[in-house]
Amino acid sequence: MKNIMQTIDEWLRKRIRMITWKRWKKVRTKFENLQKLGVAKGKAWQWANTMKSYWHTANSWILTTTLTNARFEKQGYLSLYKYYLGIRA
């Protein structure tokens, strides 16, 4: 069950990243939001112009370093894996 919960949690985090990236729609919006997340101007512009699919970008280094799990926890998203470990302990 531990491995299943971890796999589901990872998939959900990736899905949240994908939805966030998709919600930003335009290159300019992606660029501005990446800068707000602390990415340097040049890198933010390069990453915002990526032609990768939403799903591929969600698992890339671009979003995993900017939209971190800690940021999701701060926003109120629960981690199923951590919840499961808390119940099991």
Rank of each mutant, 00 (worst) to 15 (best):
residue 1 M to R: 14
residue 1 M to Q: 13
residue 3 N to P: 00
residue 3 N to C: 04
residue 4 I to Q: 11
residue 5 M to C: 04
residue 6 Q to C: 07
residue 6 Q to P: 00
residue 6 Q to H: 11
residue 7 T to K: 15
residue 7 T to W: 07
residue 8 I to F: 09
residue 8 I to N: 04
residue 10 E to M: 13
residue 10 E to K: 09
residue 11 W to I: 05
residue 11 W to C: 11
residue 14 K to C: 06
residue 14 K to Y: 03
residue 15 R to P: 00
residue 15 R to K: 13
residue 16 I to T: 15
residue 16 I to P: 04
residue 16 I to K: 15
residue 17 R to D: 00
residue 17 R to F: 00
residue 17 R to Y: 00
residue 17 R to T: 01
residue 18 M to V: 05
residue 19 I to R: 13
residue 21 W to K: 05
residue 23 R to A: 06
residue 23 R to W: 07
residue 23 R to I: 03
residue 25 K to E: 13
residue 25 K to H: 12
residue 25 K to T: 13
residue 27 V to M: 11
residue 28 R to C: 08
residue 30 K to A: 00
residue 30 K to H: 13
residue 31 F to C: 03
residue 31 F to Y: 14
residue 31 F to Q: 09
residue 32 E to A: 10
residue 32 E to M: 08
residue 34 L to S: 06
residue 34 L to C: 04
residue 35 Q to N: 09
residue 35 Q to S: 05
residue 36 K to G: 08
residue 36 K to P: 05
residue 38 G to L: 05
residue 38 G to P: 03
residue 38 G to C: 11
residue 38 G to F: 02
residue 40 A to S: 15
residue 41 K to A: 10
residue 42 G to Y: 09
residue 42 G to P: 09
residue 44 A to N: 09
residue 44 A to S: 12
residue 45 W to K: 15
residue 45 W to L: 15
residue 46 Q to V: 02
residue 46 Q to K: 14
residue 48 A to P: 07
residue 49 N to G: 04
residue 50 T to K: 01
residue 51 M to A: 12
residue 52 K to M: 12
residue 52 K to N: 10
residue 53 S to D: 11
residue 53 S to R: 07
residue 53 S to K: 10
residue 53 S to M: 08
residue 55 W to R: 13
residue 55 W to Y: 12
residue 57 T to D: 02
residue 58 A to I: 00
residue 58 A to W: 00
residue 58 A to K: 03
residue 62 I to P: 06
residue 62 I to D: 06
residue 63 L to Q: 04
residue 63 L to N: 05
residue 64 T to H: 06
residue 65 T to W: 05
residue 66 T to Y: 04
residue 67 L to M: 14
residue 67 L to Y: 08
residue 69 N to Q: 12
residue 70 A to S: 11
residue 70 A to D: 03
residue 71 R to P: 02
residue 71 R to L: 06
residue 72 F to S: 03
residue 72 F to K: 04
residue 73 E to S: 08
residue 74 K to Y: 05
residue 74 K to M: 13
residue 75 Q to K: 10
residue 75 Q to I: 01
residue 76 G to W: 04
residue 77 Y to D: 07
residue 77 Y to T: 01
residue 77 Y to N: 09
residue 80 L to V: 07
residue 80 L to P: 03
residue 80 L to E: 02
residue 81 Y to E: 02
residue 81 Y to L: 05
residue 83 Y to T: 15
residue 84 Y to Q: 08
residue 85 L to C: 15
residue 85 L to T: 02
residue 86 G to Y: 07
residue 87 I to F: 13
residue 87 I to Y: 14
residue 88 R to H: 06
residue 89 A to L: 10
residue 89 A to G: 15
